[in-house]
Design a protein around this nucleic acid. Structure first.
Lengths: 219, 219
DNA sequence: TAGATTGTTAATCGATTAACAATC
DNA sequence: TAGATTGTTAATCGATTAACAATC
């Protein structure tokens, strides 16, 4: 694998390729050209080929790409075969929704444990995942390998819990709190799901469209 | 307002500015320079100023930006004062989590109604939002203004429900399903929350870090 | 072989950064 | 006035697109 230093934009497209390839495989398609794949995702064929060539040569000239082989390559690049282990902090509404509905194992991640402060939850299991007390977190981190933490605690707990995690060597956080965790001089990897940011972007595009429509009506 | 054609990258940063400005206001800060604001968010001062200058002149030379005035400008750009009206489709785990925990009105959006197929939910209210039967959707759309739809239905329902929505004039969708809704020749505005894409990006960065660490150990 | 499509280099385009005059 | 910081233009950097030789 080449791997110079792959740009963020490329990384963000990899899961989309993966999703589309899964869809194609489910439809019984077994080969695809960069042009076709690009069309499906709104990209140019050049871009598709450039993206893949960041990591190696996955196609065959004159033929295209084998769907399942390409899928496997991308899965490998993303680290889906590494057996990453995650823990979830905060079994509130969103935490519970993730535990119930989101299949971590589909993406190669094992959700190994959850933590909450509510005594009535501690000791129970949710979808095969045991819920521990927050006080047990430090001990857990010291005795288990944890590759990433899913942060679904209330806003106020976000920073203290993050500090505890990083102090015990967890350097990757999937952040569902509406808090800017990215700290200037920190080396922690933070991946945000900011619902409000997403909704506000949508609002912007709707606003833009309404304004355009109003402008046309003026004429 | 200038408004030539603002790039996606700029739009994506606007909610982050808003969030940071809210934080600053809460801390009692009432002015900030582009340099300081940039540092807080990991951006250069140039970028901050360029971003704002897409929309007008919000600062004062020699002084900086007034926090609450700038906040109000950005809120206006995003359309938070437009009184957008949304409906939610699918009151499952994730739909319920949003209704319970996510404060739409904080971002200027009114969640006006929800729809589900489960008979036991129909007619009930959740956090002040009435739940209707899916069969009532068409009639609702024809008799109410709906600016955006929150799509939290199961995977299989995503495409048919979207088609129904667009057929009745809803042209903006906040998509929580793991389905690529962006269709090549559609004019619908789709904003995706793809949990799996986000997790896979995180996996990539963790993988990269582990590989770098392993490489260093080799030497 | 002829046709198709990749891998890859070169050209273009757009976004970020630097610089500085304007001005509070 | 002097210092600070914006608004804005110019320079740089990086990402996307186009082109084409390599090759299946």
């Amino acid at each position: 694998m080449k791997q110079v230093k792959v740009s963020n934009n490329v990384i963000r497209r990899l899961p989309r390729y993966l999703r589309k390839l899964d869809e194609l495989a489910a439809d019984g398609v077994d080969k695809i050209s960069s042009r076709q794949l690009g069309e499906e995702l709104g990209l140019t064929s050049s871009q598709v080929r450039q993206d893949f060539n960041c990591f190696g040569e996955f196609g065959q000239q004159g033929y295209g790409y084998n769907v399942s082989a390409l899928r496997a390559q991308i899965a490998g690049i993303l680290g889906m075969d590494r057996g990453f282990s995650a823990i979830l902090l905060g079994v509130g509404n969103i935490g519970r929704a993730l535990m119930e509905n989101f299949c971590f194992s589909d993406w190669g991640v094992k959700l190994a444990a959850a933590f909450d402060i509510k005594p009535e939850l501690v000791g129970t299991e949710y979808k095969g995942v045991r819920i521990y007390a927050m006080e047990e977190l430090e001990h857990y981190l010291d005795t288990n390998r944890v590759d990433m933490a899913v942060l679904t605690v209330p806003k106020a707990a976000a920073v203290p819990v993050t500090e505890l995690l990083t102090a015990h060597g967890v350097d990757a956080i999937w952040n569902f709190t509406n808090v800017e965790l990215t700290r200037p001089n920190s080396s922690t990897i933070v991946e945000n799901i900011h619902f409000s940011d997403s909704l506000l972007s949508l609002c912007y595009y709707v606003t833009e469209r309404r304004d355009d429509a109003a402008k046309k009506e003026d004429k």
